[in-house]
């Protein structure tokens, strides 16, 4: 199994009631897989993160080792490695 540390920030942390969780995913599984694994562990986030089609809302920003997943060559389909850190952060716009 691949162990990944997931960090939750701001609103997401408040909804989940915790700021960190260790996820175990299968070798070859992706950021997207980890998101759904996280939602299985923390189901209180489901109504906030998923749209009517069961897809992640676009305002759930996921960062792999501090890089925005949207900027990675394979995006949310990037395969995870043991020890990776995922940050889940709500949209940030600045005053």
């Amino acid at each position: 199994m691949v162990q990944v540390e997931a960090h939750l920030f701001a609103t997401f942390k408040a909804i989940a009631g915790k700021n960190k969780i260790i996820l175990e995913v299968l070798p070859g599984q992706t950021i997207e897989d980890a998101c759904f694994a996280l939602l299985t562990s923390l189901p209180m986030l489901r109504s906030h993160w998923l749209d009517m089609n069961g897809q992640l809302q676009q305002y759930v920003h996921v960062y792999l080792n501090q890089s925005d997943s949207a900027t990675l060559p394979n995006g949310m389909l990037t395969e995870l490695q043991d020890g990776d850190i995922l940050d889940f952060i709500p949209p940030v716009a600045g005053g």
Binding site: A10, T11, A14, Y59
Partner: peptide, 13 residues
């Protein structure tokens, strides 16, 4: 409530 919850946190989030 699902995004920044400005109504409870304001900008300190």
């Amino acid at each position: 409530a699902s995004q920044n919850d400005m109504r409870h946190y304001g900008t300190p989030y």
